Amino acid sequence: METSAATPTRPPHQAATSPSPSPSSSLRLWRPAAQRNMRNQWSHLSAAKEQWLAAVADGRAHASALVNVHLSCRNMPAMDLGVLKDMPGIRDKANSKLALREEQYSGMLLSAYKEMFSDRQDNLNDSGDGGGAPVFKWFSVLEFESLAQELVQMFVSEQKLKRLLLLEFLSIALKEGVELQTSLNWGDELYDGESNKLQSIGLQSGDAYSPPENWCAERLGSQRPGNLPLHEVLQVYLTTWHANMNINRSRIGEIFELVEEEMKIKLS
């Protein structure tokens, strides 16, 4: 009678272990998730850029309308009304209408400013940096982040300049008539919840939102009650708003072109 072979057993002193994946195997597991995350993040950046530029264009239109109405109101006492000049109360009625339009355009300008802020999209599925390996073909996670930071810094700098101009535009309405002593300061909230919004998207740390670099408080007209800016100054403000002084459109195009070529997708 044959004796059956004993079932092989693992020696008790050896723990069961799975072989560690090789570096190349780990990268194969990491790369698809990293690529998906990178596409999502850059798609969000592209959409935020377009939203910001559209809001800036709307803001300039509203600011131009506000300035025109303000100048009409300021010039009303000396304005030649032609055959209407002897109509009782015509200037007061015209001023009342202009004041309402001034308030309307101020609100529309403030709404455009709010639209410049895109909700922050934190990376909740961070798959790591892959040890510096390329995510697609050439660029590592760190290199993608460096390009994104370059973009963000442009818009942060320009956002602060836009807010500075917004203080001036909104203040010209406050300096009419009984509101002569009212002024806006950099630290004031321009709308309820602005500070919370700035903190939520990472533009404000604590209670302070740092002003633009090389900003001189003494030059801010909104902090000098009763000092209405000249027509020429208001035109410079409008031109500066439109120019996007801190935005290098050529460089932005280069960055997105590089990213699209690397990812082999079209972001916009």
Rank of each mutant, 00 (worst) to 15 (best):
A148D: 09
I201P: 12
I90C: 05
G130I: 15
L109T: 04
D126S: 13
Q149V: 04
L190T: 04
G128P: 06
S195H: 07
A78F: 12
V156E: 08
E103T: 11
M154N: 07
S72C: 00
E145F: 06
N68A: 02
S127Y: 02
K97Y: 10
K175R: 03
L142H: 12
S96P: 05
C73P: 08
P77L: 02
E194N: 13
S171G: 14
K175W: 05
E179Y: 07
R74D: 11
G177N: 07
D188I: 00
T182Y: 14
D192K: 11
V141W: 15
Q199C: 13
L198Y: 03
E189L: 13
D126F: 07
R91N: 02
Q104F: 08
W186F: 02
L109P: 05
D129Y: 09
D129V: 06
A78T: 03
Q104L: 12
V156S: 01
L142D: 04
D80R: 03
G187K: 06
G128I: 06
E189T: 09
P134T: 04
V135I: 13
S127H: 04
R91W: 01
E150C: 02
S106P: 12
A173R: 09
L100R: 10
K162M: 08
L166T: 13
D129H: 07
A99N: 00
W138N: 11
D86G: 13
Q181R: 05
L164C: 14
L100M: 14
L170K: 04
K162Y: 11
L184A: 01
L109S: 01
M76F: 06
L167S: 03
A173W: 04
N125Y: 09
L110W: 08
M154I: 09
K137Y: 01
L147C: 05
L170V: 01
L198H: 13
D86P: 03
G132C: 00
D92P: 13
L161Y: 14
K137T: 04
K137E: 06
S106E: 12
H70K: 06
D188N: 11
Y105Q: 08
A133I: 06
L180C: 05
S171L: 13
G177I: 02
E179L: 05
N196E: 02
Q199G: 13
D86I: 14
V83D: 12
L100V: 01
R120T: 00
F139V: 00
L180N: 12
L165H: 14
M87K: 15
L170S: 03
A99C: 03
S157C: 03
V141T: 15
L165I: 15
K114S: 10
A94E: 09
D188G: 06
Y113V: 02
Y105R: 09
G177E: 10
S127V: 00
P77H: 00
P77T: 07
E143D: 09
A148Y: 00
L84M: 15
P134D: 05
E189C: 08
E189R: 13
E158A: 09
